[in-house]
Design a protein around this nucleic acid. Structure first.
Lengths: 185, 185
DNA sequence: TGGGTCATGTAACCTGTTACATGATTAG
DNA sequence: CTAATCATGTAACAGGTTACATGACCCA
């Protein structure tokens, strides 16, 4: 997965491992976390596969840069990967934690879902403010054709968080109902 | 993660590795996929941690059963884990694939999002029909206090899939807009 | 003088995936 | 006869996480 994320970024422009790390931290962070260690490991692997090449740029006073570029084979691999159709929901730690909550008291679980609600509301606030995220974005992407897809990921984030808010509210209502109907439990 | 899922199930009732596999396949499948190999590996690990114990039950004509039970230490660990508050969105292959789609044509991407929409609609159909999923569920959970939390995971699934449908529709509209505004691209 | 940024990485670990392996019983 | 179910696992690999390590420059 990260391999293809890196190919995608290098397809925008040449970058060092350090810059790639920065883009993940600043712009892709909300849907993918990438560790420095993994980025360098994957770059090494991408190179042995012939999907990227690198050039060492000497610098004065700073460590040398290894600037990576995607090759034509890498671009082909990127397109191949983009065309894969796998939409499964994937493993969800949140639902795993929800499923087994019968072990704790309804009161405690109400607080838990209130925590989720607060998280969703705050994350929504952060996501709706364009400044920080757009600034990071402009560093990364220049052309407007690509901007459309960036916008779609943001919209997904907003819709997802709003759904999460509505879901947590619904869970809270259910649990409040349980308390009234069955106070002896 | 799977460790705690297994602890949660054993907290319902004693089970063999094989039965645990069955419950994951039948009931938890939509939010967690567990491989047989991993289940046996985790059971071994849970045992060395003292969170479960097992008893070998000889059977005629069939392989012996190893029936696992959660210990009090295991139940404590389960509660500790349930109380962790980590609501991050997590890595999303779907958004990774969306973000980089500028590499492909808008026409191809419209088909891609139509595929997502079709997937969401079909999964919604399957999820709204209670029979199969409820049957698997009744095998697993007896008491109604716990049933509430099972219901919440199902509701999440439905709300998520509906959000996915709305999002894919919105993406399709955006892309159709792009085609009209900028046919030279 | 101390904290942030630039810039590189390694090592160990944990968790999940894929593929393989065995073997009897039971229902159609 | 054959496919499904019961029931156990191992081995190898892939990918992500945590912690560690180095070193110079620049700004306050």
């Amino acid at each position: 997965m990260l391999k293809h994320g890196i190919l995608g970024l290098l397809n925008y422009r040449d970058m060092t491992g350090y810059e790639i790390r920065g883009v993940f931290r600043d712009s892709l962070n909300f849907f993918w976390q990438a560790q420095t260690s993994q980025i360098y490991r994957e770059l090494k692997d991408l190179k042995t596969r012939g999907w990227v090449t690198d050039v060492t740029v000497p610098q004065q006073g700073r460590p040398n840069k290894n600037v990576f570029s995607v090759t034509e084979a890498g671009r082909e691999e990127l397109r191949r990967w983009l065309r894969e159709e796998t939409f499964e929901l994937g493993n969800s730690p949140l639902l795993m934690r929800t499923f087994f909550r019968g072990e704790l008291s309804p009161e405690e679980n109400i607080r838990y879902f209130q925590g989720i609600r607060a998280f969703a509301l705050q994350a929504l606030e952060e996501m709706k403010q364009p400044p920080a995220i757009a600034a990071g974005y402009e560093k990364t992407i220049d052309d407007s054709r690509r901007a459309a897809y960036w916008g779609m990921t943001i919209e997904y984030g907003v819709m997802y968080l709003d759904m999460l808010r509505r879901w947590s509210e619904s869970c809270i209502k259910r649990l409040e109902g349980l308390q009234h109907e069955d106070p002896a439990d």
